[in-house]
Design a binder for these strands. Sequence first.
DNA 1: GGTGAAAATGCCGCGCC
DNA 2: GGCGCGGCATTTTCACC
Lengths: 152, 152
Amino acid sequence: MDSTDRKILAILQDDASMSVADIAKRVNLSQTPCWRRIQKLQDAGIITKRVVLVDPDALGLGLTVFVEIETGDHSKDWLDGFAAAVTQMPEVMEIYRMAGDVDYMLRITVPNMAAVDAFYQRLIAMVPLKNVTSRFAMERVKYTTAYPVTAG
Amino acid sequence: MDSTDRKILAILQDDASMSVADIAKRVNLSQTPCWRRIQKLQDAGIITKRVVLVDPDALGLGLTVFVEIETGDHSKDWLDGFAAAVTQMPEVMEIYRMAGDVDYMLRITVPNMAAVDAFYQRLIAMVPLKNVTSRFAMERVKYTTAYPVTAG
DNA sequence: GGTGAAAATGCCGCGCC
DNA sequence: GGCGCGGCATTTTCACC
């Protein structure tokens, strides 16, 4: 993957509605080679998806909460099952298995406090957990899906 | 926004490469009205962007770190400036202003431990901070940009 | 809202350098 | 790896129900 591919990725991560012709201009290529590069990035699994991003406030999903979970001592099978179950829950946008005292970090997006509590109740009903800490976001200052691809 | 709009959003949040004709079929609409609804969702700012998602591992960005920041006592202007400066940093994917003891929560994506340290050094060089805690992710279990739009 | 169809645009395969 | 052409799919805009 050379610097032209990186430029293409930078463009598409910011705006995937651009035509191949316009992208080609921006990276000083003609249409066909540019198109072939994009195909290749898709086939190689570097580009994983094409999606639209939606304003959560417009959907009434104004509340973001980070949930830090200490599972306590459990087997690998148990942990896998736990992770799979949490993955199914639609308000869960991100799940990370963590190093350190916190075992899992979740980011959930919900309409209001009641939904946070409903989520919490469902979560602890699934299984006993050693500790669950919720951290509430007041404001989303930055949110991007675009990874840095250009050095400097 | 009715249930048809929600169905359209659910589809486009999952796969924006679908043709309008195919989306129309899935929501039992003909092409033109379906197209008009999508336009409306864009014009209303509900759909904010069309992007491609990229595999961070493929870019050598395998390390995700949550950074919890306590800023200490500072003026609103100072906080705004701080937030703006952190927003500029390309490894920062998400920034939230938090309720509670932690003032800001960041998610950063970097190639390796050295980059974490480099980020940390740049961060604390910007200004004195009361406390900075890094939490390291071992594994990304779930990551989605698709908000739940269908009740149930 | 829905339909059908036409115009404009953009995609993407081919032959060639 | 890159280019230009051209058929074809898709988008987008009509006029009308």
